[in-house]
Amino acid sequence: MQITRRELLGHASKLLVLTGVAARALEKTGEPPAPGDTYQMADHWWGMIIDVDKCIGCGNCVRACAKENAVPDGYFRTWVERYQVTEDRDHPTVESPDGAINGFPPLTRQDVKSFFVPKLCNHCADSPCTQVCPVGATFISPDGVVLIDPDYCLGCRYCIQACPYGCRYFHPEKEVADKCTLCYHRITKGLTTACCESCPTGARQLVDLKNPRDPVHEFLRNNKVQVLKPQMATGAKVFYNHLDGAAR
């Protein structure tokens, strides 16, 4: 029996391909979904609408978020900013005392344009934060929510730097990156987010962009909305209605 070098290399490469396929097949097999769970990730694509003209800066959303998600003191998954814009527009005054968890001290001056802008994770479809994670601890779920796997995060803080909206923080006790989950534990049960639930004026609305009956489609058709920092091409899914160009 003779075997040439060409034959041997051919057999070896076949074996390599086969083992690769086998490893891939092992990856794909996993546990089936839990019984009784009717939530289908593929049927949803979550986002939010924020109507700036309805926000009164009460801070209800910030308090609700902190209670719902046990957000540590001094850190915020959502916060409200108050803008004061003068005519030059280049340098608006932005305040957010303690993230507006206790609202704002009253603003009396009438000679500037002023408004509130609630902020939270924009759950970007092309999120810069998930792209930089070296271990796959942060990701976009199949239903469009940017999440962090707290058991897998190394705490390297790359994602915190990468977010152009400053929506991530380093959890002081868990020592992992932390952020808004769009109340993933609520929306997958048919509830709205804690911030939307507690917003007294309906300035925030959780929306499901994949649900054809969601009022978001009519809203987006009838209103001129924009996202924050569109030039970053993040595919942000928090749509602001009546947002002034000075907001960033």
Partner: peptide
């Protein structure tokens, strides 16, 4: 287990995050 089923992450993380109790 299951890493890569939906993307470059653990699918078990989704269940972990969903398991949080509701307050409101």
């Amino acid at each position: 287990k299951g890493f890569g089923r939906y993307g470059h992450y653990r699918p078990a993380a989704l269940d972990l995050i969903r398991a949080r109790p509701v307050a409101f």
